[in-house]
Design a protein around this nucleic acid. Structure first.
Lengths: 202, 202, 202, 202
DNA sequence: CGGTAATCGAGACGGTACGTCATGTCTTACA
DNA sequence: TGTAAGACATGACGTACCGTCTCGATTACCG
């Protein structure tokens, strides 16, 4: 992991400056989401953080890895989904906070950049998946598993397709920006995906 | 328009070299989809096309605009959807050729790059939408309109959400590459979106 | 010669447009001596003359050749030296009009450019010499020859050195611009150089 | 100053690579005086020096400024004039080494290029004057001052004109190349000019 | 308390691509 | 055939980032 976690055995030498680490992440995040929208440059991040480029590259392999961390700082706070007892409730508790978070600021371009890089560099792709995609997808899988256990869904439900039917539309609007990306849309997606577009025959 | 359309009244000077235009588009397309995946460089396109950079910049404002045209050359051939008489049939005839085309080569990274640029440069966003997104979306709208006319769907159906429920999952896999992007998935998406994830009560 | 002289035998086809020729020379001359001082570009000359670049290149091999002609248009008017009966008078009648002409406008940079080109391209060097240097030098030689014939100067006078002693200082100030380039300087040069060239009376 | 002088107080960051600096100057000088005579290109200098273009532009504002330094590297070695006790001796000790140096290689076109640039860009003109013109001219002024002090020359001698009478012919041949530029010519110029400058014995 | 070692700031470096510009050639349609 | 329009290949320009590097200065620990 880039950011480093527990300080395993206490290393020799000067310890890492946490002030620098935080300044870098803050600067990166501010530049990423700047209204101007122009791409972040490492020189700019270094300058704004009052830090040397070498320090950044000591802890982050690339601009994209830094972007990942800068974003993750905020996104990790997305609330964990609750067990509401129903599939619909669980999914709403999974997706609505995520949509609220993703819509709060212009994340679209940033995510697009991350995806671009992920499709170019397989190593980065792994990090991206591990941090941004799989955790939420795994949470979704757990929800569907509970629903199947409850007998709400048949055991042969194709969960992967179901997840794409939920996350796909959300990412679609987040990235393309062709229509509103809000709580209402999140609810519409959940409801329509669960019930289907065609009306039920009574 | 960059590609130029009908030759209105025959201009005065030396006419545009169609040989150069085709060579540029071909070179761009080949480099875009090169297995190496490294980004296209304008110098590389110029060199491969046996053309000067100035000539490229005379006709395309930016690398992304060129990318758009290069891709469009292939994608414009995607077959028009047929009127099959049923919503499901129409949608399948809309989406399956598109999936077949998009999956034939590694378009994911390319599309990701276009989206990134679109979210950065509003002028480019318009071109991208007009060429790649709206035409297919419009075709989808026509399909839903026919279906409503036939009484298959209620008139208050939210078509925009429905379209996102169809295109969203497809783009999701195309861009993220987390699962297979194929004809089977296209059919699953259509069927599940139309019928819903939850089982019908009989 | 580039400009062409008498139309020998009446050529076939459309005759050369004299209007275009004059417009080109005028445009070139105006741009060359523009206060901005930025270099002339052939596109700019063509645009200002309302002429196509091809037309320029049909009649002038290069930008420098055109510059030569554009300048020559003005400089050819420099009055012929008169036979005043004395070496000093002859030289003053040779150099003072030339200095007056060369100082009237910012010719320094232009001449510098011509010299640069002449030292690079031997073909151009010949044209430059033939048009700008040798005629005046030849006039100088004639003056010295008359002076020797009159017995004013000994027959073994090194005329080439003498000419450089006269033209050298003038070109020096014209090109370097480190001190005033005016009629007074011309007279000073003639008087001082002459004092050294003329034999001492014993 | 671009070349840098004494290392004042030891700067913070990575120190300038002297290896790169020398390689750049050497490459520039080699290309400037290449027999081919084709103009130097910054790309060529960078390639030959094994250096990036950015590094060149970090230290030199323009191609001409670099040329100045590259040339100066060699020309700064021109011997200081000695006090020989006579005006003639002093001037010969000033001019002959300069002529020897300037004639050793094809400097004509290079100097012409510098002059052209100096007459276009006033900022560069100052640098050019300060480095190439004024030092030698100042040395000349000192020589004349000593001569006046000795009573060899009258106090109202126009030193500036005298200097132009000496340097003018030399530059004239150096730039125009119309006649031999050698030690003999230097002596001829000094002798002829001096005869005009020195007062007549009555 | 002095040595060892990893960190930090500053910033220069080689490299790659950018998008622009000027040169001189060329290919049309029109005169 | 000459000309206006203007596209073309060539190649240099100067700039912007990238990620690496080399300094001197700092800050811990460990002996």
């Amino acid at each position: 992991m880039t950011t480093g976690g527990a300080t395993q055995t206490r290393r020799r030498g000067r310890p890492r400056s946490d002030r620098a680490r935080r300044a870098i992440l803050k600067a990166a995040e501010e530049l990423l989401l700047a209204p101007s929208g122009d791409a972040v440059s490492m020189d700019a991040v270094a300058a704004r953080a009052g830090v040397s480029k070498a320090t950044i590259y000591r802890w982050w392999r690339s601009k994209e890895t830094l972007t990942l961390d800068a974003l993750y700082d905020e996104w990790a706070t997305a609330s964990r989904p609750r067990d509401t007892g129903s599939l619909r409730g669980d999914l709403l508790s999974l997706l609505r906070p995520w949509v609220e978070l993703a819509g709060r600021r212009p994340y679209g371009p940033v995510i697009a950049r991350l995806i671009t890089e992920a499709r170019t560099d397989p190593t980065f792709a792994e990090e991206y998946q591990a941090r941004f995609v799989q955790p939420r997808r795994e949470a979704g899988r757990a929800i569907f598993a509970r629903s199947i256990e409850r007998g709400e869904l048949p055991p042969d439900t194709d969960v992967e397709v179901a997840l794409d039917l939920l996350y796909g539309p959300l990412y679609h609007r987040l990235l393309h920006g062709h229509a509103s990306f809000d709580d209402r849309f999140a609810r519409d997606v959940v409801d329509t995906a669960l019930a289907g577009i065609l009306p039920r025959r009574e």
